[in-house]
Amino acid sequence: MAALLNLILTFSLLTVGNSLSLNYYHKTCPDAEFIVAKAVKAAKAVDKTVPAALLRMHFHDCFIRSGGPSWDVPKGRKDGRKSKASETVQLPAPTFNISQLQKSFSQRGLSIEDLVALSGGHSLGFSHCSSFRSRIHNFDATHDIDPSINPPFAAKLKSICPLKNQAKNAGTTLDPSSTTFDNTYYKLILQGKSIFSSDQALVDTPKTKKLVTNFATSQEAFYKAFVKSMIKMSSINNGQEVRKDCRVVN
């Protein structure tokens, strides 16, 4: 992964400019996209979790093809000069309700449609117990388990993450097809089988539920919306420089 990031950053050093562009490397390094795509494909062949890691990195940086949609990625993003762990609190948490999610996304110029579409990134990846334990143990004063969870599914999660289990890497995939980018995630939400509270919250308003239902019914509609929202999110670019070494500022 580090080698791949260095490769991408090396290409970035070849040009200058502040705005993103689809032909950013056209003159300076016309094979850049092919080389990066080849590196990602090779990495995925060794480790199927790479697409999820890259997608997560992109989400975090702004706020691939992995059996799913592909698109022309606007290029030329700059790096920031500061990186603070404390700022990660600005990221939408897996415990957020729908109001908190809408506020978090709107503050970055992203719509409700973007919120539901980008949440589909949870089609890939893995979650540790700490991110959803509160839903399956001592949920509130009257419920041990979050009542929005499908009971058999909740029992399965409790077996994976028992109350006194302190295993560091205990957890589960975000959906059964966790290495394939598809619309299974939305189908699970409608069945009450989502992992995070923030996922299940997407059916708490008529508008977001309608979008979830649409994406669960049509994978093509999900792909189209996801690509549109990813391109929009990638334009959130507050960086100042292109680093010579990805590990330190220039």
Rank of each mutant, 00 (worst) to 15 (best):
A42H: 10
P162G: 08
T213M: 12
S148T: 14
S127W: 08
S119A: 11
K187A: 03
V249K: 14
A170V: 07
K158Y: 06
L174N: 14
V46T: 13
S83P: 00
N18P: 04
I136E: 01
M233Q: 13
Q100R: 13
G68V: 05
A141V: 09
S66C: 12
I236E: 12
K168G: 03
P162F: 07
K210P: 05
K48T: 13
A225I: 05
C129L: 05
L124H: 05
V46K: 15
Q107L: 14
H122F: 01
T28F: 01
H143V: 05
F181V: 03
D140E: 06
A32Y: 04
C129Y: 07
P147F: 06
S197Q: 15
F34N: 13
T10D: 11
I136M: 02
H128V: 02
Q200L: 09
S119Q: 11
R56C: 01
P152C: 00
S194T: 03
V36F: 10
Q100V: 02
K75Y: 00
R65A: 04
M1D: 06
M1I: 12
C29A: 14
L163D: 11
L14R: 15
L110P: 04
R56I: 00
K207T: 06
N237I: 00
F126L: 07
P206Y: 09
A155I: 10
G80V: 04
K210F: 00
P92T: 04
P94R: 04
N250P: 15
S198L: 11
V242I: 14
K187I: 00
L211K: 09
H122S: 11
K168N: 12
K48I: 12
D199T: 12
S229F: 08
I136N: 05
R133I: 04
G17A: 10
G80Q: 12
V73I: 14
K78R: 15
P151E: 04
C129W: 07
K168M: 09
A43H: 07
V50E: 07
L54N: 02
I149Q: 10
F34S: 14
G17K: 13
F63E: 08
H122K: 10
F105Y: 15
V36K: 05
H60F: 04
Q200F: 07
K207D: 12
I236P: 08
S131Y: 09
K232M: 00
T88S: 14
P162R: 07
A39L: 06
F139Q: 02
P152G: 01
A37I: 00
V242R: 15
S194G: 15
S148L: 09
I145D: 01
D146F: 10
Q166E: 10
N237L: 00
K209L: 04
D140Q: 11
M1W: 09
H26I: 08
V212D: 02
A141R: 15
V89T: 14
P176W: 09
E220W: 12
I149A: 04
F153C: 10
D114R: 13
L9Y: 11
H26Y: 06
H58R: 15
